[in-house]
Computed example of a mutant assay.
Amino acid sequence: MQPMEDQTANELLKQVRDWKLLHEDGIMKLQRFWKVKSFTKGIELFQLVTDIAEAEGHHPDLHLFGWNNVKIEIWTHTVGGLTENDFILAAKINSLKMDHLLRIKTAAGTV
Score class of each variant (00 low, 15 high):
82 L>G: 02
60 P>S: 02
69 N>D: 08
58 H>V: 05
23 H>L: 08
5 E>I: 13
92 K>F: 02
18 D>T: 15
53 A>I: 14
3 P>F: 02
103 R>Y: 07
44 E>L: 07
111 V>F: 06
76 T>Q: 08
110 T>F: 15
3 P>H: 07
81 G>F: 10
6 D>P: 06
63 H>P: 06
2 Q>G: 01
36 V>W: 07
108 A>V: 15
15 Q>R: 10
10 N>C: 07
41 K>I: 06
91 A>S: 14
30 L>E: 00
111 V>N: 12
63 H>V: 00
27 I>H: 07
63 H>T: 01
4 M>S: 11
21 L>D: 06
79 V>T: 09
34 W>M: 01
52 I>C: 01
110 T>H: 12
85 N>V: 08
94 N>R: 13
77 H>E: 10
109 G>H: 11
10 N>Y: 11
75 W>M: 01
47 Q>L: 15
60 P>Q: 02
78 T>F: 04
15 Q>V: 12
66 G>T: 09
58 H>K: 06
38 S>T: 15
35 K>E: 04
28 M>A: 03
59 H>L: 06
81 G>M: 04
63 H>G: 00
99 D>W: 14
83 T>F: 08
72 I>S: 05
94 N>S: 07
43 I>V: 12
83 T>Y: 11
9 A>I: 03
103 R>S: 12
40 T>R: 11
93 I>N: 00
68 N>W: 09
86 D>P: 06
94 N>A: 03
103 R>W: 08
101 L>N: 06
26 G>L: 03
92 K>H: 12
78 T>D: 05
22 L>T: 05
3 P>N: 13
20 K>H: 11
64 L>M: 02
59 H>I: 13
84 E>R: 15
46 F>S: 04
51 D>P: 13
78 T>S: 12
77 H>V: 04
54 E>L: 09
2 Q>I: 05
64 L>W: 03
16 V>L: 01
78 T>N: 10
12 L>I: 12
75 W>Q: 10
74 I>L: 00
106 T>I: 04
83 T>C: 15
36 V>S: 01
2 Q>L: 06
39 F>H: 05
9 A>Y: 13
71 K>T: 01
100 H>E: 15
23 H>A: 05
69 N>W: 11
83 T>D: 01
86 D>F: 12
